[in-house]
């Protein structure tokens, strides 16, 4: 008898749930409305890049463009005047090389921390991880003057050096946790096969870490690409600027004229992130879960 009653209960719950999803149509409307608000700035950007300056000032900012042709002019103009070309190339280099090196060095460090047994492992890990606990402002002045003194201020090398260093601690955390989960017998087999320690790292461990390494690389690349502060302080010279730095200066100097241009520049600056996101949407989500963010 008790069985029969609970069976009826479940059926009722199921029916209620089905009904409730149908009843949720008002929720869909609300959700659509909220999403619409969210989309407005994107819409605004997309319509503005197709307008000439005159067109923009003449009409309502949200109006549709008259044609698609102005985008070419806008793009070329933004590219040249804002030196987006240099900024793009610089940030690409900083991002790929910087994040790449950082993740590689982090893998090396994580290997040393987990696959070789020595005293006080935790201390050294904490030392590296301490790189993440201070707010950025505390680096600015010392690095600015040190760079000036050594002579690497406003150089590609100087920027690369900093970006690499700052992107090391987090991947070390991630890779260390990941490596702790890999069986250690592989290493022993490799050592018995005659591999030197570095060979074990390079041929055996590294190929098995591609997943977390890619995830952290993408995260750090994005961070470098988005950086404004450190490029402004340590590498403001035109040839060395990051793309966000170029964008900001462009925006600052054209405040009173040409949002169509600055928005085009903003779009150009955002292209890689958008492309990466569309291609690797699943990786992004996976990366957040793997890294525990």
């Amino acid at each position: 008898m008790a069985l029969a009653t609970s069976q009826i209960d479940f059926a009722a719950i199921e029916a209620r749930e089905r009904a409730s999803t149908k009843k949720k149509w008002p929720s869909v409307v609300v959700a659509a409305f909220v999403s619409l608000i969210w989309v407005v700035p994107f819409y605004y950007m997309l319509v503005s890049i197709f307008k000439t300056h005159a067109e923009y000032t003449a009409n309502n900012p949200l109006s549709l463009p008259e044609g698609f042709s102005p985008i070419a002019d806008n793009a070329i103009s933004a590219w040249n005047t804002a030196k987006m070309g240099a900024g793009f190339a610089n940030s690409a280099m900083y991002g790929i090389v910087g994040a790449g090196l950082a993740v590689f060095f982090a893998a090396m460090a994580a290997y040393g921390l987990t696959r070789i047994s020595f005293k006080r492992q935790n201390f050294w890990f904490m030392l590296i991880f301490a790189g993440t606990i201070f707010p950025f402002q505390i680096y600015l002045i010392p690095l600015f003057f040190a760079y000036q003194k050594i002579g690497i201020i406003n150089t590609h090398f100087g920027m690369l050096l900093f970006y690499t260093a700052v992107c090391i601690p987090f991947p070390v955390l991630v890779l260390r946790n990941y490596l702790n989960g890999l069986s250690r017998e592989m290493d022993e087999a490799a050592r018995m096969d005659g591999a030197s320690e570095f060979r074990v790292f390079w041929s055996i461990i590294l190929p098995n870490c591609i997943g977390p390494m890619t995830a952290t690389f993408l995260l750090q690349f994005t961070w470098i690409w988005n950086d404004l502060l450190f490029s402004t302080v340590l590498g403001n010279r035109e040839e060395v600027r990051s793309i966000m730095n170029s964008l900001q200066i462009f925006h600052g100097s054209y405040t009173t004229a040409g949002p169509n241009l600055t928005l085009t520049a903003a779009l150009i600056a955002s292209l890689p992130a958008i492309v990466l996101f569309l291609l690797l949407r699943r990786h992004f989500m996976e990366g957040m879960r793997v890294t525990g963010v």
Binding site: M108, A109, G112, I116, I128, A130, P142, L143, A165
Partner: peptide, 16 residues
């Protein structure tokens, strides 16, 4: 193995 990471982090993130 840890040295590149340690050198970079100490030099650019801890010493400052």
């Amino acid at each position: 193995f840890m040295s590149p990471a340690i050198v970079l982090v100490c030099g650019l993130l801890l010493m400052p």
